[in-house]
Computed example of a mutant assay.
Amino acid sequence: MHAADSAPLSIAITTGEPAGVGPELAAAALGQAATRWPTARFTVLGDRGLLQARAGSAANLANERVVIEHLALAVPSQAGKLDAANGRYVLGLLDAAIDGALDGRFDAIVTAPLQKSTINDAGVPFTGHTEYLAERTHTPRVVMMLAGTGERPLRVALATTHLPLKDVSAALSVDGIVETLRIIDHDLRAHFGLAAPRILVTGLNPHAGENGYLGREEIEVIGPALERARAMGIDAPGPYPADTLFQPRYLKDADCVLAMFHDQGLPVLKFATFGEGINVTLGLPIIRTSVDHGTALDLAGTGCADAGSMIAAIDTAVSMASHRRAG
């Protein structure tokens, strides 16, 4: 074994929107670092004073496994109160994590939730973490996948992400769906240790188009894409009606479901896993996981926020980085 292979994994954690729950969730999760993740070391990116003020254990957070990398707030932050003056600070945390992952300093990054409106109000056009990661890493196509936990977790990936519903059909193409399936298949093999992933694919329309009577996307786009993907060796049956696909008898042999749009697959996933689910960006040259919830401004600073999703996101980041290193 090479020395680099035996070195601890290096994981960066952004603390996200300072008025939200991110800082306290990072601190709460990393309170378990010494026992839960013995093969990893962590760098927490955020304002040290904010962490000390917002998270009760933050003053004692730094140890042999956890380093706080101080990036200063633009203005003081109050729990639950958004301030556009800190929009660029939030983006700076993400940039620091991405830069560190690209140059090999970090094996993976875990992102706490941010508030898109704060960044936009600061004068920076921002659609979301997923799109920004793709832009910063010059990745032409990435895939958003949310997942539960456990021995055989429910995973749902998306063919389109943050689009108005009226734009979804036009955004679907044979080439796009094939590339999305290729990314899912590759990353489930490389980062999740699945030797032969099975990806169930939904249709777009009710009843998967009802043989064309309720829409032709299944016939003209999704079906041909699946034929091409299967010819490439990807196990991707479908398209299935989304309203009946999410049943145990269908999911028991599936490693992932590919849904056509955001609110087709994610309500089911979040109903089944909320508080323990995670968000993973597939297709990037770096590993990125995140929580499956937002900034929870109403819970910030109350001590009531549940760190379960953050813990699961760190679990997955460590596991994915281990698989990548072993590969």
Rank of each mutant, 00 (worst) to 15 (best):
H2Y: 13
A4I: 03
A7L: 04
A7F: 01
S10T: 14
I11C: 01
I11S: 05
I11N: 07
I11T: 10
G22M: 04
A34M: 10
P38V: 00
V44R: 15
R48H: 13
G49Y: 10
L50V: 03
S57N: 14
E64D: 15
E69G: 13
A72I: 09
P76C: 02
A84E: 08
N86E: 08
N86V: 07
R88G: 12
R88W: 11
L93W: 04
L94D: 12
D95R: 15
A97M: 06
A97D: 09
D99V: 13
A101E: 13
R105N: 11
D107H: 15
D107A: 09
P113C: 05
L114P: 02
Q115P: 07
I119H: 05
P125C: 06
T130A: 03
Y132V: 07
L133E: 03
H138P: 01
T139I: 00
T139M: 00
V143T: 08
M144S: 01
G148W: 08
T149S: 09
R155Q: 03
A157M: 12
A159K: 13
T160W: 09
L163Q: 12
L163F: 02
A171L: 03
E179Y: 06
L181R: 02
R182W: 04
I183N: 00
D187H: 10
L188K: 06
F192A: 15
L194F: 01
P197T: 10
R198H: 06
V201E: 08
T202P: 06
G209M: 10
N211R: 06
G212A: 01
Y213P: 00
Y213K: 14
G215I: 02
E218A: 02
I222H: 07
A225T: 05
A229L: 04
M232D: 15
D235W: 07
P239I: 02
P248M: 04
K252F: 13
G275V: 12
E276I: 14
I278H: 12
L282I: 01
G283S: 00
I286V: 15
T289P: 05
T295I: 07
A300Q: 10
T302Y: 10
I311W: 04
I314G: 06
V318T: 14
H323M: 14
